[in-house]
Amino acid sequence: MADANNVLEVQEIHTFIGQFHILEGVTVTVSRGSITVLLGRNGAGKTTTLKSIMGLTPPSQGSIVLEGQSLMGRRSFTIAQMGVGYVPEHRAIFRDLTVRENLAIVQRKRDDLERRADFIFGLFPDLKRFYNLPGGNLSGGQQQMLAVARALVPENRLLLIDEPSEGLAPVIIESLIEAIRRLSAQTTVLLVEQNFRVASILADRYVIIDDGRSVVSGQMQDLVQDEALVQRYLGVA
């Protein structure tokens, strides 16, 4: 039974990539206005879960429901148009396009960027300074900010953010944490994060994925207290 408070309900999805059975039963529920983090070791299936929700690696079984509408069998552009923003790992910004073009490409309405500019540049002031520079000229941290900003141009119902802190300097990570916290006031976030400290600061809820299955979920504050669980699935002391 769908809960009206949930933005996203993923039930027992199975995903194959080629002949490999990557997800063997992942269940994730994301409630409105929350930040939920997917945790797990490398290769556990976290990124594939986000890609499956996004329709990039479509699941063969299970169900994915966004505010009452099934996402199963839909192409990724339709899923994006339904209000799911995606920030992939390794940023995937368009290096030859300027910052402005990287943001403008996502506009659904002609004035989306103009309307959201104050909010976006309030979060990431650097992007305003480098507005007409190619994305490839930005630092790693600025590229990550651009990738997040790009997902904020349309008013999405849900943001999927994959490993935002990967490869960034600590000082950049701190400003990114602050930005994600502020943007979560406007939209619901499903995050993949390897950095347990970052995850514990940001997330309200967690889901641990192990060997392609969701194994434990709950409140983030409970996980932080449970060293044994953290050690068992994440190898973090």
Binding site: L56, F77, A80, I105, V106, R150, P154
Partner: peptide
């Protein structure tokens, strides 16, 4: 692929 994931 990324362009498609942005809703195009």
């Amino acid at each position: 692929e990324m362009v498609e994931a942005l809703g195009i």
